[in-house]
Design a protein around this nucleic acid. Sequence first.
DNA 1: TCTAGTGTATTAGTTATATAGTACACTATG
DNA 2: CATAGTGTACTATATAACTAATACACTAGA
Lengths: 122, 122
Amino acid sequence: MGMEFLPDKPIYQQLVEHIIGDIIRDTLVTGEKLPSVRDYAISVGVNANTMQRVYKELENLGITETRRGQGSFVTENQMRIQELREEMKEQLVQSFIQNVEALGFTTNEMVHYLQRRGEQDD
Amino acid sequence: MGMEFLPDKPIYQQLVEHIIGDIIRDTLVTGEKLPSVRDYAISVGVNANTMQRVYKELENLGITETRRGQGSFVTENQMRIQELREEMKEQLVQSFIQNVEALGFTTNEMVHYLQRRGEQDD
DNA sequence: TCTAGTGTATTAGTTATATAGTACACTATG
DNA sequence: CATAGTGTACTATATAACTAATACACTAGA
């Protein structure tokens, strides 16, 4: 019960990303029912409205479908999931490159650094 | 006159990063005097207080030195600049990896993607 | 038809960011 | 010593982002 959040990003956004991560990792699968807004809110330790916003975002992204009175479910549309996966990847890389350039680094330098880090972890 | 800012990050922070970038790129060199708070604020199109905050951050980071009544100058301490460069790099990579993992990607996948992007740009 | 479980809407409060205006303090220079 | 140029401090305001609390609406099933 409870989850750690970084102070530099909205909680709801971190939750959205975490759930998308679960879908990408297949921890949450197609058609699966998500916990109710209130249950999930409690288990994570946030306000129910915050969680509601998370579910709304997920629905706007087209990766969940909500049936009033029933709950939210991961979409059956596998294509949309793959699409979103690529969108998120592109967006992540783009904002990374933006930061890299603002700070005067080159993408090449960062790639090398990332590779060295990767070797250590695996 | 005027500068573009992204909506997802505080203006003062973007300015700090931009100036650090100028130092890393050697667009701003050791010992060089920065414009006055007021002048710089006008040229960029922000309020003077916002720019003051930027200068304060830079001084806290130890890469500028402020002499009251004279102005702010890039530190003569080359070592500190190199140090900061590595700090920023590490921090950038760390937060990137955090996002990558939250979204269910692997560092390896992202490195490959970054490399393909790099080839296109150069 | 009642009730428990679900999503939804509305309103309010807190905090961070940015802006604005004004006054003060230090330094160099004529 | 007067003045212009510089950084600094303080108070106030506006706005947006985020979180919180509460009330409402729909669905399924006993």
